[in-house]
Design a binder for these strands. Structure first.
Lengths: 332, 332
DNA sequence: CTGAAAGCGCTTACAG
DNA sequence: CTGAAAGCGCTTACAG
């Protein structure tokens, strides 16, 4: 059994004042003389007393918890992006006296999240990803619980913060075109995720901007499994591309491995670039050119947005964060 | 603002009975007539009412939350083991109406965890790893909060569940010796983690058991960085080992990559095996022989142990789970 | 500036 | 079997 914790009554009694006063001295709300404030602060410091969050929550109709919803597609936490976000959210939450409830949800079952909401355990939710017409966002909305999506959704009434995927990928593609590539093969994942359609759009815009027609037969989307990815590369290679552009780091590594296996050299025989950077791309041989996003900043921004919303501050519905192009050996 | 939730008073009023009765009909504690129980169940089913967890917690001096403490060493969640554990713990918790608070802690600062405990936000904690003389375990113990460690600690008064690392590694080593290896080089991480010293012990026991002396100059421990790992392989190779035994999957892959880079073939020129299996070892080329542990089961067992402790049931202090040897091409 | 009292939404002896 | 009442540990109008 946990230690019998000291309560606000204990400190009130010890200090010979009322609970009301102690409460005010701690929270800073309502006026208290500087002297009593000092006394109280000193006492609670020494006895390291902190108001019981559950009781406090009940009185204020708050929980000081948020749900961090991880899509079960990522529930193995494969994506470096998701992992970095988790760390950042935890830190940001802790600094603002909030706690993070880890929740796994997907399109088939959002039961754990639903139960959590029904039980009133959180003040809001942060989604590490969302698809269009996601039951999770519907659920959150119907419960009228504040939530923020890390990523891009066409429904702009949903609070969201994302990296500027379109521009990032437009710039990367444009750079490749400027360096003389003319047959860039594009390999990407499911178009149910807006992140992928955005990247595709950036790819197309760059071509338009540079006056180079997109080689449609070189565009491979909706690659969800490794076999389908390999099949796509294999097929692409028969069409003599001069560069392979992959939509994420893991795909890039898979492709690189395949190329090596077939004795195709990067960048001598074909160039390779990635729409999403990660440490693995820096360490691979050769290192791979990529668009770099700041997952930590993204997560912190999303968290702040959620916190502001919970506290009734008005926030901008959509935020877009920058990116950085990192040129590495794979395109030199 | 969240939807104005229905309360137990609402349902009591709607059903024309007292809150007491409704509460009992829901919790199943105390006697209620079958008829009223039915009525209540039906009503709450339809209005999908669930008692507010915060209020319930306050009344019962429980939170129905546990802290999942991730060592910051793993806070990038690199280890597949940690990630699988997280998923499993979330599932198990959800099934038992508990929530999981994600907490990152390390030996330098356990502040987030301390605050969480001070505020009384959890009923217990689950540690994904612990080192001997860990401030985190000290903290938990001083607060008298139930906790369970996934891993091995010499202090047997601490609740812990682990895979049988010693036996697993003994068997793997013994197998290699039986297959004729005589100069097995061992590469491992920091001995601050008991998991590594256990594996080392298994390695030694196997040699004793098979009557083969350990080649001490081939034992490389406390390899914490990739450079130090590479230096170790390089050094080991000058001593003509016939097999490299790595303590974890990531190390194995690093080593394999290095060998390939130097044109050394596995298993023709040298054999390779790993003390910890992961999917990457199955997919690598060649696939790598390894000891396989069930992270999911480990996590669920630890969770159950924690839950039982919270509920005042007595549990066995230490549990050891099995393992499986998976022989792959790297040792054929 | 300070305090007594009500209330947050539940649970649980205690009576009946 | 059912209910009125007290209590969990806080906060916050309302008075003073």
């Amino acid at each position: 059994m946990p230690q019998q914790a000291t309560t606000i009554s204990d400190v009130a009694q010890a200090l010979g004042m009322s609970k009301t006063t102690v409460s005010r001295a701690i929270s800073g709300k309502g006026r208290v003389s500087e002297e009593t404030r000092q006394k109280v602060q000193e006492y609670i410091q020494q006895h390291n007393y902190r108001p019981n969050a559950v009781a406090r929550g009940l009185a204020q109709s708050k929980t000081y918890n948020i749900a961090l919803v991880i899509s079960s597609q990522f529930s193995n936490f494969d994506l470096p992006f998701v992992r970095k976000s988790m760390t950042a959210v935890c830190e940001a939450a802790s600094q603002t006296e909030y706690e993070v409830l880890l929740t796994i949800a997907d399109r088939r079952s959002s039961t754990p999240l639903r139960r959590l909401l029904d039980k009133g355990k959180v003040d809001g939710a942060l989604l590490t990803s969302a698809v269009e017409e996601d039951p999770v966002t519907d659920l959150l909305r119907s419960r009228e619980v504040p939530f923020v999506v890390m990523g891009h959704l066409t429904d702009k009434s949903i609070l969201q913060v994302d990296n500027d995927q379109v521009s990032g990928c437009r710039e990367l593609t444009a750079l490749l075109l400027k360096m003389g590539r003319r047959r860039i093969a594009l390999l990407g994942g499911t178009q149910r995720y807006t992140v992928n359609t955005s990247r595709l759009r950036g790819f197309e815009e760059a071509h338009a901007q540079e006056g180079v027609p997109v080689q449609k037969e070189l565009v491979y989307m909706d690659l969800e499994s490794v076999p389908s990815q390999l099949a796509a590369v294999e097929d692409a290679l028969t069409k003599e591309p001069d560069c392979l552009l992959c939509m994420d780091d893991s795909l890039s590594l898979t492709v690189l491995k395949y190329l090596k296996g077939r004795g195709i050299r990067v960048p001598q025989d074909i160039q390779l670039a990635s729409m999403y950077d990660s440490e693995a791309l820096e360490e691979s041989d050769p290192s791979i050119t990529a668009v770099q996003f700041d997952a930590d900043k993204l997560a912190r921004t999303a968290y702040q947005m959620l916190l502001d919303t919970i506290n009734g501050k008005s926030v901008k519905n959509c935020l877009e964060l920058g990116y950085q192009l990192v040129i590495r050996r794979s395109t030199l």
